[in-house]
Nucleic acid binder design. Structure first.
Length: 699
DNA sequence: ATTAGGG
DNA sequence: CCCTAAT
C-alpha cells in the first residue's frame, strides 16, 4: 500500500508509474540493421571493421587460445630470438609483430552472405582462424629508422614464413592447421632459422649469437611451473630483446602435449650473463605504454570497442551486448570464455561491426583472412590494399597484409621453455589485441582522425590513394596512463601531424550519426529522455594517444617493475583485469537530469532514475547515478570553498538537499506506518500537510 | 538484477 | 568509480 504508493508518486506529486521491468529493461531493444550504401562507410566503420577483424581472428577458433603454443612441427611458425643477458631476466622486445593479412570489407549489405558463399565456393581466401603474425626481417632497418632509434644491441628475429597458397577453412572448423599449406618440418624450420640467424648475425655484428637449436626444451606443465633445469651452467635468466618477432598463430593446441619434442625454436644464446635466480615473472613492456599483459577476456575485448561502437552507431541493438557487458560493472566479473557454440543473440546477419566476431563464431564469416605470405620490404607500409576493379562496386576492398603491433618487452627466465615463451608472447599480443586495441588509419602518412568521414570523403576509396592507406594498431588511450607512454611506437608514423580536418556533416545516410554527433550536448533533460553525452569518440582518443606518445621517449626502468607486478601468466585463463572505466564527470545538465529524476522518483530507485533520465546515456549506470547522488549530497553539504571540479549551481545543490531530506523522511515514515502521519516536512518544501503520498514539493 | 554503502 | 554484501 504505502510502499506501492511511494513508488507511484513522485517528489513533486507527479504520478510516476513504475516502469514494468519487462518493458523497461534497458537491454530489451529492437534489433537494428545497419544499412549503408556505396562509399558511405565512414572512417570509423573502417576502423571498427579492422578491429573486428582482428578480434574475430583471435576468437574464431576455440583452440586459438593456445594457438601460440601450437606452432610446433606443422605449424608455420618460427621464432628467432636474440638473447642478451641482462639482469637475469629475459627481456624480449617485440618491436613489431605483423599480423597476417586480412581482408576487411566494409560496407557491404550482403556482406556475410557473400563471404559465406565465397567460403563455400572457392578457396580463394581462407578463414584461418589464426592470427598470423609474420616477420619482415627486411623491415628491420627501416623500422628502426621509423622509430628513430637504432638499437645496435637489439637482436633481430627473422621469421620468414612461406605458407603457400591460401587456405580455405570454414569458420567453425577446428583448426586443422594449414593442411593444404606447406608445412614446415622441423628440418625445414631449422634450416630456415639458421639462414635467418646468419642474416641476423650480419646485421648485428655486436652480437655473438648461439643457436640453441636442438636443445630439448624443458617440459613445462600447464601451470607454467618449470620442471626442467635451466640450460647447463648458463644463468637462469637471459635477456633477449627481439627486434623482429614473427609469430604465427595457428589454431592448434598441441604445444603442451608434444612438449617433449618441441621443435627447435632458435634462440640465440647470450654472450654474457648475470647470475640470478628469480621468479618466473615475465615482464612485458610495450614501448608505447605498459600494457597490462594479463589477458583480457574476450568480452573485455568487446568492451573496448564499446564506447567507440556506441559513439559510432548509437545503435542500441548493436551494442546492447556490449552495454550489458561493460556499462554494468557487475557483469565484468562474469566474463567467460567463449566457445564455438557461443551464440549470444544469434542476431541477423549484417548487424553491425560489433557483431562480427560473433558472426564468425556462428559460422557466418564476415571477414576473410588469408595467409600471410612473405610480405617484406614494406618499410612503413602497414597495409596494402586493393580496390575492386569494378568501378561500379561501391565497396572498398582492402587487403591488409600485415599489422604492426607496438613494441613490447618481455622478460622471462632463461629456464623457461620455448613453449612458455611462445605462450608469453601470445599473451602479450593477445592482451594487446584483445585489450586496448585501437586501430588507426593512415592516409599518405597522415592519420585520419575524423572517424565520421566516409571513405569517399577521405579519399580512401580512390584508387590512387590505396597505396597510401595504412593501418596501425595502437594502444587504447584508456588503457594506460600517458606517462607510461614512451616514444612513438612503431605504429605511429614519425610525421604524425595533427590534421586540421574539418568535420564533415554527418552523412544523412548514416543513421547512427544522427544522435551521436560528438558535439551533441546533453540537452536539459525534461525528465523525458536524456540525450547521451558520449562524446569520447575514437577520434579524440586517437589524437590524445598519438600526441602523448610522442612526448616521452625512454622506458623508465621503474615501470618495468610496475608491470612485473601484474600477474601475467597466472593462467592465461580469465585474466580479464577489467580496466577501470574512464572517468566522466557529470555535466551540469546531467546533474540537472539526475536531480530532477530523483525528485520525482526518490532515492533508492536508481534503476528507474537511470531509465528515466539516463536511458540513453549508456555509460551511466544506475550505480553511477547513485554514486553521483551521493557525491552531490556531499558537495551540497560542504562549503562552496571545499568544492572542486565543475561548480554545481547552488540551486541544484539545494534541490539535492531538499530532495534528500524529503525522501529520507518518506523512507523513515514507512518504517513506522502507524501513527507517524505527522506533517513534518522540510521547511523549504511546500507540501500539503497530508501524510499521504501526493505531497507536493517545490521543484 | 538492484540496492546500499564502504573504499 | 570500484567492489561487495544483501536483497
Amino acid at each position: 500500500m504505502v510502499l506501492q504508493k511511494r513508488l507511484d508518486y513522485g517528489f513533486n506529486g507527479y504520478q510516476v508509474p513504475a516502469i514494468p521491468r519487462a518493458t523497461r529493461s534497458a537491454r530489451k531493444r529492437v534489433p537494428f540493421r545497419k544499412r549503408v550504401e556505396g562509399n558511405q562507410t565512414s572512417a570509423f566503420d573502417l576502423l571498427a571493421t579492422v578491429a573486428g577483424t582482428l578480434l574475430l581472428d583471435k576468437e574464431s577458433s576455440p583452440a586459438s587460445n593456445n594457438s601460440w603454443n601450437a606452432e610446433d612441427q606443422s605449424a608455420v611458425e618460427k621464432n628467432n630470438v636474440k638473447e642478451e643477458r641482462q639482469d637475469g631476466d629475459q627481456s624480449l622486445k617485440l618491436e613489431t609483430c605483423n599480423v597476417s593479412e586480412l581482408v576487411p570489407q566494409t560496407n557491404d549489405p550482403n556482406y556475410s552472405s557473400r563471404e559465406s558463399r565465397s567460403l563455400q565456393n572457392g578457396n580463394q581466401f581462407g578463414v584461418t582462424s589464426a592470427l598470423t603474425t609474420s616477420e619482415c626481417f627486411e623491415r628491420l632497418d627501416s623500422q628502426k629508422l621509423i622509430n628513430g632509434k637504432i638499437k645496435n644491441e637489439m637482436g633481430s628475429l627473422a621469421c620468414k614464413l612461406e605458407t603457400g597458397p591460401f587456405v580455405s577453412r570454414t569458420p567453425g572448423d577446428c583448426v586443422e592447421p594449414v593442411s593444404e599449406n606447406k608445412v614446415l618440418t622441423d628440418e625445414e624450420l631449422d634450416r630456415t632459422n639458421k639462414a635467418s640467424t646468419g642474416e641476423v648475425a650480419d646485421k648485428c655484428p655486436l652480437e655473438d649469437p648461439l643457436v640453441l637449436d636442438g636443445k630439448p626444451p624443458a617440459v613445462v606443465s600447464s601451470d607454467s611451473s618449470i620442471k626442467a633445469p635451466s640450460f647447463g651452467e648458463h644463468d637462469p635468466f637471459i635477456s633477449f630483446p627481439v627486434q623482429q618477432y614473427d609469430v604465427n598463430v595457428v589454431s592448434r593446441d598441441d604445444d603442451e602435449k608434444s612438449s617433449g619434442c618441441t621443435h627447435p625454436s632458435p634462440i640465440r644464446e647470450p654472450f654474457r650473463s648475470t647470475p640470478r635466480i628469480g621468479d618466473r615473472r615475465i615482464r612485458k613492456i610495450l614501448a608505447s605504454r605498459y600494457w597490462k599483459v594479463a589477458l583480457r577476456s574476450k568480452n573485455a575485448t568487446y568492451s573496448n570497442y564499446d564506447e567507440n561502437l556506441k559513439s559510432g552507431y548509437c545503435n542500441r541493438s548493436t551494442y546492447k551486448r556490449l552495454r550489458s557487458g561493460r556499462n554494468f560493472p557487475f557483469k565484468k566479473r562474469k566474463f567467460l570464455h567463449y566457445t564455438s557454440e557461443s551464440n549470444s543473440d544469434g542476431g541477423t546477419i549484417s548487424e553491425g561491426i560489433s557483431d562480427l566476431p560473433e558472426k564468425n563464431i556462428n559460422g557466418k564469416a564476415s571477414i576473410l583472412y588469408s595467409k600471410m605470405h612473405g610480405v617484406t620490404g614494406e618499410s612503413s607500409s602497414l597495409a596494402d590494399q586493393r580496390k575492386s576493379f569494378n568501378s561500379r562496386d561501391p565497396h572498398v576492398k582492402l587487403r591488409i597484409k600485415s599489422f604492426r603491433v607496438p613494441e613490447l618487452f618481455i622478460e622471462i627466465p632463461e629456464s623457461a621453455t620455448v613453449g612458455s615463451l611462445k605462450r608469453t608472447v601470445k599473451e602479450a599480443v593477445t592482451a594487446i589485441l584483445g585489450g586496448g586495441l585501437c586501430v588507426g588509419v593512415l592516409l599518405q602518412g597522415k592519420k585520419v582522425r575524423d572517424d565520421n568521414k566516409t571513405l569517399l570523403q577521405t579519399g580512401i576509396s580512390r584508387d590512387n590513394q590505396m597505396d597510401a592507406l595504412g593501418f596501425s594498431l595502437e594502444p587504447n588511450p584508456s588503457h594506460a596512463s600517458p606517462s607510461l607512454c614512451p616514444g612513438g611506437s612503431p605504429l605511429t608514423l614519425p610525421h604524425d601531424i595533427p590534421l586540421p580536418l574539418a568535420r564533415y556533416p554527418a552523412n544523412p545516410g548514416l543513421v547512427n550519426q544522427v544522435t551521436c554527433h560528438p558535439s551533441t550536448e546533453p540537452c536539459i533533460p525534461n525528465a523525458g529522455n536524456f540525450i547521451e553525452s558520449n562524446n569520447d569518440c575514437t577520434a579524440d582518443m586517437f589524437d590524445k594517444s598519438t600526441t602523448e606518445s610522442k612526448a616521452l621517449v625512454a622506458v623508465p626502468a621503474m615501470s618495468v617493475e610496475t608491470l612485473a607486478a601484474v600477474p601475467v601468466h597466472k593462467k592465461s585463463k580469465q585474466s580479464e583485469v577489467a580496466q577501470r572505466r574512464i572517468r566522466r564527470p557529470f555535466s551540469i545538465a546531467e546533474v540537472e537530469a539526475l536531480v530532477q529524476a530523483v525528485e520525482k522518483l526518490g532515492t533508492g530507485r536508481w534503476r528507474d532514475v537511470k531509465l528515466r533520465a539516463f536511458d540513453n546515456a549508456k555509460h551511466r549506470t544506475y550505480v553511477d547515478l547513485k554514486d553521483k547522488w551521493k557525491t552531490l549530497l556531499h558537495t551540497a553539504r560542504i562549503s562552496p570553498q571545499q568544492r572542486r571540479g565543475e561548480p554545481v549551481p547552488q540551486e541544484l545543490l539545494d534541490r539535492v538537499l531538499n530532495a534528500h531530506t524529503y525522501w529520507s523522511q518518506q523512507q523513515a515514515k514507512q518504517q513506522q506506518p502507524p501513527e507517524s502521519c505527522l506533517p513534518h516536512y522540510n521547511s523549504t518544501m511546500i507540501g500539503s500537510g497530508r501524510c499521504d503520498d501526493d505531497e507536493n514539493i517545490l521543484g
